[in-house]
Design a binder for these strands. Structure first.
Lengths: 345, 345
DNA sequence: TTGAAAGCGCTAACAG
DNA sequence: CTGTTAGCGCTTTCAA
């Protein structure tokens, strides 16, 4: 008998199956005597309830499925910490999957989760199509975290692009920088670019902003990032018309490894932070170890709020109404790549 | 009707439930006509099979549970890559959990996995007690990867400590180092320390080994790592009797962040690699970004082999015989912290 | 080939 | 308080 069942326990304890079921769920309406007998029988047999059978019969599992876009990104480990914090508080278990950063695998992973009929799903950083998302949300409570999605059927918890850009700009201007370049390494950060520009607008008349979008950020050859960046910093193409000199600070967006911009700056012959300061947006791998100053949402808080929103929906706290849109305040982690601008600048 | 069932599909297609079941599983023994009708009905209804019900009825799930000791360690992301590679090849799905590095949570996570009655479990880097492991293995195929466990009931895939130490020593001696210190930052790496000593023994009479164990590696105050390391490198306590000078290279074991040893070296006033070379064992976060040379098992291969071993056991390829012990060859990743010793040394 | 019947292990009313 | 009775959605003999 590899796995004793409820029935085995009932037989050994000399009671009915239903009574055992009640005891296993900690119901208060069972006599002390019988309860002890059941517990003893269960222990002796090494009984463990079958979660699938339980879920099937009860119609709920007490489990929330989580899709983590990419296990190699520390961002998702931190989001998971937040999810797990809140899940523990609410006595919910978590089951994870990942699409390993590939949309096709991710889609399959979400479908696997859907097939399990869990109580709800948290999708962290999904690249999933909006149509798929809507379809999935029809049969399952879903919260998306860390990515803007176009769907009214799912709750959404994200960082606040405007606040993040503003905080980065505030940090740099407080250090004395007036000419700041925004470097978009994947071309997908339109809202952050806009937020950067808006923040610079608010930084007074002496502030000059420039934006450089480099789709192929990983190329280091001629025409690659170091070249483009070098030009931009020299006031070449990409430099702002009317600027009184080259930028003394860079805000990098979409840096896949957290150090691409730093490496490019160094390759272009700039010292960091002596010649130019660098702030990277997000929570990319290596940023901490390389001492890069970063700005981005508090990932753990992102996770906590996401799990909270999901549980509210599941438990009906929020009457199936319109999806929630929750924003999280940014955090700027000052490390070694930001300093006052060079004296001559 | 939130979730159509087999029965709904059968009704719509005008066939019996069993027939739909056959079609959904791709059985060849169904007429073309009916199969098409069933498929059409399923699509129209948006039918998705209920994995729990299926698992309960079939006695297998096609799912393997995976415990990842810590999502913040890139090591486990890499092991997962290997697991997923192999799982995809064998048409198995993966469901992950983590104990977030805490034994109590980890234990709970494993029990949750056990309760689901999946086809098997892979435990990556578990801190689980051997007794718990034996008990779990009684009812479920289990493979442990990345950690030595004392159990005859589970398969085990790990790195090869002797080969790893040997490769680190070989790399350093090839660069010209003769006096090498082994720095154990968590005191738990006894087998690696022994392997280091053995490798140094084999490196010829001019090779001098020393070992320094620092339990409280994260302290940077007086008596902390930088101090201790500085003393050792000066030939103070920890330096080998009879050595002809201080070590010119360090092999760091159990470095939690991959850069603790590097930071300590720098704080102790050493230049790396000009004054002293550094090799870190394992696959800790930040090592890549900080340019630290590392040696350790090929984590992805670790994952592949673990999944292979598990599936062999599940599918009876290996007749429930004694547990397998599989070793994986080491990989040395040369980065920027190793160089020839200073000329004067 | 197809359909009917019997569970998988558990929960959830309901009647005693 | 306790036991009985139905299922949850699916797979799987076994006949037809």
């Amino acid at each position: 008998m590899p796995h004793p069942t409820l029935e085995d326990v009932a037989a050994r304890a000399g009671v009915s199956r239903a009574l055992v079921s009640l005891v296993m769920r900690g119901s208060p309406k069972v006599g002390e005597e019988r309860r002890a007998a059941v517990l003893a029988a269960a222990r002796e047999l090494g009984y463990r309830p079958n979660a699938m059978a339980r879920g099937l019969a009860a119609g709920r599992t007490g489990i929330v499925g989580v899709l983590l876009a990419d296990l190699h990104q520390p961002l998702y480990a931190r989001i998971h910490d937040g999810l797990a914090d809140e899940a523990a508080r609410r006595d919910v278990r978590l089951l994870l999957t990942t699409g390993r950063g590939r949309p096709a695998l991710e889609r399959a992973a979400v479908e696997d989760l859907l097939d399990l009929r869990l109580d709800g799903l948290v999708l962290a950083g999904p690249r999933i199509a909006a149509a798929d998302l809507d379809r999935a949300a029809a049969g399952c409570a879903i919260t998306v975290v860390g990515r803007a999605v176009r769907s009214d059927r799912v709750d959404r918890v994200t960082g606040d692009a405007a606040a993040e850009a503003a905080q980065a700009v505030a940090h740099l201007t407080a250090l004395g920088h007036r000419r700041i370049a925004c470097l978009d390494l994947d071309g997908r950060s339109a809202s952050l670019r806009r937020a950067f520009l808006a923040a610079m607008d608010g930084a007074g008349p002496s502030a000059h902003a420039s934006v450089l979008t480099v789709p192929d950020a990983l190329s280091t050859g001629p025409g690659g990032l170091p070249d483009a960046l070098g030009n931009a910093l020299d006031g070449g193409p990409g430099g702002p018309p009317g600027a009184t000199g080259p930028p003394t600070a860079v805000l990098a967006l979409g840096d896949p490894g957290g150090t691409a911009a730093l490496a490019a700056l160094l390759r272009a012959g700039r010292r960091v932070p002596e010649d130019v300061s660098l702030v990277v947006h997000g929570d990319p791998p290596g940023a901490g170890a390389a001492g890069v100053t970063t700005v981005g949402p508090d990932a753990r808080e992102l996770g906590r709020l996401a799990m909270g929103a999901l549980m509210d929906r599941i438990r009906g706290g929020v009457p199936g109404g319109p999806a929630q849109r929750i924003g999280v305040a940014p955090v700027l982690t000052e490390r070694a790549t930001t300093a006052p601008p060079p004296a001559g600048a």
